[in-house]
């Protein structure tokens, strides 16, 4: 555990909680892609199956349980409790175009051809692209609520901090995991355009809206 890893986890946690609170307080999930949230629930479920097979630490177990619990709570709020506010017409990204290739890639490129390892690999690949339906939705509507941009910033920052964590671990622990690193780079790159808009607009007090 190093400072990048810890702040990465906390940034991830902050993102998840910001989104839950935003939906809960406003009683609305307008502008939020339910598809991205379903993908994140799948990501956590397939990655954290090792909760059932191995114990690493209290920290590890509690974070995993919180992430999974919050992911399903978010999906529940979007598709059940505040379903009437869900903007399904704008959430039109075809997720099968992500899940199918990612599933194939996980079977082909992994560290070990075993059930849990393939699911872990699948979750790493899927996470790297799971935000695309949300970004697609924003590009379609041309705008995002400020609180939604805070959520996206924390979510993007988390993987960027993990990249620093992996650089740290490479130098100080001679450890690296090529699958996680490549997927993490892809994931972070997908946020770059958004980071630019966040810094140049949202942090200067303007709403994030895209030119028509």
């Amino acid at each position: 555990m190093n400072v990048f890893r810890l702040t990465g986890d906390l940034s991830h946690l902050a993102a998840i909680i910001i989104l839950l609170l935003k939906i809960w307080k406003s009683r609305s999930c307008a502008g939020i892609s339910g598809k991205s949230q379903i993908l994140f629930a799948i990501v956590f479920t397939t990655r954290y199956l090792d909760l059932l097979t191995s114990f690493i630490s209290i920290y590890n177990t509690s974070m995993k349980v919180i992430y999974i619990g919050c992911a399903y709570a978010t999906v529940y709020l979007i598709y059940m409790k505040f379903r009437a506010t869900y903007d399904g017409n704008h959430d039109s990204f075809r997720v099968e175009f992500l899940v199918v290739p990612v599933g194939g890639l996980a079977v082909l490129v992994n560290h070990d051809f075993s059930f849990l390892e393939i699911l872990w690999t699948f979750s790493i690949y899927l996470e790297s692209v799971a935000i695309l339906p949300q970004l697609f939705m924003i590009s379609k509507t041309g705008e995002a609520e400020t609180i939604t941009t805070h959520y996206l910033f924390c979510l993007g920052l988390y993987r960027a901090l993990y990249l620093l964590n992996w650089i740290w671990r490479f130098y100080f622990e001679s450890f690296f995991d090529m699958i996680a690193i490549v997927a993490g780079v892809v994931q972070t790159v997908l946020y770059c355009d958004f980071f630019y808009l966040y810094i140049t607009k949202v942090l200067k007090g303007k709403k994030l809206s895209l030119p028509a």
């Binding site: 986890d9 690493i56 590890n60 699958i179 996680a180």
Partner: peptide
């Protein structure tokens, strides 16, 4: 297996 070490990450 070296990659098992990574499983402490979230």
């Amino acid at each position: 297996k070296g990659f098992d070490k990574n499983k402490d990450e979230l």
